[in-house]
Design a protein around this nucleic acid. Structure first.
Length: 205
DNA sequence: AATCTTCTCAACCGCCTCTCT
DNA sequence: TAGAGAGGCGGTTGAGAAGAT
């Protein structure tokens, strides 16, 4: 049934990483570089799933990670990016050097969501909570259009459907000319057709 | 001091996309 | 073109910490 597991779970450790495991992983990546995650655990002498190694490295061990509290500026950047991109944490993280998608996702769920709610802003739509009802109507009508597009084959990715359904959002980050709204913010963030968005360029195109 | 509740965040899971053959 | 393998993503979970009673 379905796909085979990414690794042999019977012989892998789970849960929190030990210091020794961290050191092994760091030493191996220093010696051989990133990549080859499926074979890495055995090569590094780790009883871990390759995915787990990758996650540990990217989210915790990478030397260029910033760690520490988010600044007010970072907060606002995340909020603005979320308004544009929705829950595409990896894209948001790409605009925040030293921050990881997992870290931003956690921070959003624990801090920013609450912060927006306290401001009277719906964290999903970024609209004032009072306006949520009319916004929902607008979303419903837009979804109909989207479904029509999907049925005609223009939308195939399920993940795209997770994007916030706000009519005034321009998610065509890659193929459209610079948006007229909030030009300074777009400029500041450098949202262009650069490599990190390759994947989304394709799906959005 | 002990217990309960809430919060935080590292880690896991399953799915999707990309690349190679 | 199809299939398999690998990388990557977002949602969710759960252990430990912190705060409240």
């Amino acid at each position: 049934m379905g796909r085979s597991p990414c690794c042999e779970k019977a012989h892998t450790n789970k849960g929190a990483w030990t210091k020794e495991e961290d050191e092994r992983l760091i030493a191996h990546i220093r010696a051989h570089g990133e990549g080859g995650w499926r074979t890495l655990p055995r090569a590094a002498g780790l009883l871990r799933c390759g995915k787990s190694c990758r996650l540990r490295w990217i989210n915790y061990l990478r030397p260029d990670l910033k760690r520490g509290n988010f600044t007010q500026e970072e907060d606002e950047t995340i909020i603005n990016l979320h308004r544009l991109l929705g829950n595409r944490w990896s894209l948001i993280a790409a605009r925040l050097p030293g921050r990881t998608d997992n870290e931003i996702k956690n921070y959003w769920n624990t801090h920013i969501r609450r912060k927006l709610l306290s401001r009277g802003v719906d964290p999903m739509t970024h609209r004032p909570i009072d306006e949520r009802a009319p916004a929902t109507i607008a979303i419903s009508s837009e979804r109909k259009e989207e479904e029509q597009q999907q049925s005609s084959g223009e939308e195939s990715s399920a993940r795209r459907q997770q994007a916030p359904k706000c009519p005034d959002l321009n998610l065509e980050l890659c193929i459209s000319p610079p948006p007229r709204q909030e030009p300074s913010f777009q400029l500041q963030l450098g949202i262009t057709d650069s490599a990190p968005e390759r994947r989304d360029c394709k799906s959005l195109g």
